[in-house]
């Protein structure tokens, strides 16, 4: 038992160290790799907690495929992340600490880990163990729960994955050629650029919407953001035309 605890503590401290390294690291390549490491250590910890199925998934998805996908995404971006001021990291830290505190508040009343009499293990959980042997006759209760007892959940999860795929299909396209098409109104455009207001330069928001977002960036970035966003915020040429289809 005590060996287990030492192992668990060791793995948790590794996770903590890796997590901090990921936060502070600016080389994206290293970050991606460390995320893979994080997943792997996680998987090891799950094994130590006897959640073999979860560990398997974590290893396959977290350490395997998602690392590759992150790499593929990284190729499209800079290799280095911009320096993030500590001020901007305070908020995530606050949110983590607040959530953590809430969890700690609850810990006092949590059942002991592995307690056979805890509600999670005694009520429906125990029922699954009995019923699987009786109803389905397969040794792996996890599979029985996932695919049969709560099969509809898994259906939902499959759809979630499908929706993610569909999203990629919609936003990027499988051949990487999406995103060039531009929407345009079916009629005469009187918006933005062509409105007399815009010609007079009146009634334009003082700071363009994209630059508002950048209010917390350092000063010199702000001006750049303003420029680019204004050039982009402009409407495309609105050509009066018939039905787009």
């Amino acid at each position: 038992m005590s060996g287990h605890i030492i192992l668990d503590l060791g793995l948790i401290s590794m996770l903590l160290v890796i997590a901090f390294a990921i936060i502070r690291m600016r080389s994206l390549f290293a970050v991606v790799m460390l995320q893979g490491v994080y997943s792997l250590v996680c998987a090891a910890w799950f094994v130590s907690l006897d959640a073999v199925d979860v560990a398997f998934t974590e290893a396959a998805v977290g350490a395997g495929v998602s690392t590759v996908l992150m790499l593929a995404a990284m190729l499209l971006a800079d290799r280095q992340s911009d320096e993030v001021s500590l001020r901007r990291q305070i908020a995530p830290i606050i949110i983590v600490i607040a959530s953590g505190l809430m969890l700690f508040y609850a810990i006092g009343d949590m059942p002991i880990y592995g307690d056979a009499n805890s509600p999670a293990n005694s009520h429906v959980g125990a029922g699954y163990l009995d019923k699987t042997a009786k109803d389905i006759h397969i040794p792996n209760v996890v599979t029985a729960v996932l695919a049969s007892y709560r099969g509809f959940d898994t259906f939902g999860e499959t759809v979630v994955i499908f929706a993610a795929g569909l999203g990629v299909l919609l936003l990027l396209g499988l051949n990487g050629n999406a995103g060039k098409w531009q929407a345009c109104p079916n009629g005469v455009s009187i918006g933005l650029g062509q409105s007399p207001y815009a010609q007079l330069g009146e009634d334009q928001p003082k700071v363009s919407p994209k630059a508002e977002v950048a209010t917390n960036l350092p000063k010199e970035k702000k001006t750049i953001a303003k420029k680019t966003s204004q050039s982009k915020g402009r409407p495309r040429k609105a050509v009066p035309k018939g039905d787009v289809s």
Binding site: R88, S99, E212, V213, L217
Partner: peptide
């Protein structure tokens, strides 16, 4: 309140997250 004002800024500012955490805390 305006679109360029304090309360309309988008995500890179910390406000939404700080508020979320604060709400969670107050709720607790």
């Amino acid at each position: 309140f305006s679109p360029a004002g304090t309360f309309s800024a988008g995500s890179p500012v910390n406000l939404p997250y700080v508020l979320t955490a604060a709400m969670l805390f107050i709720c607790l």
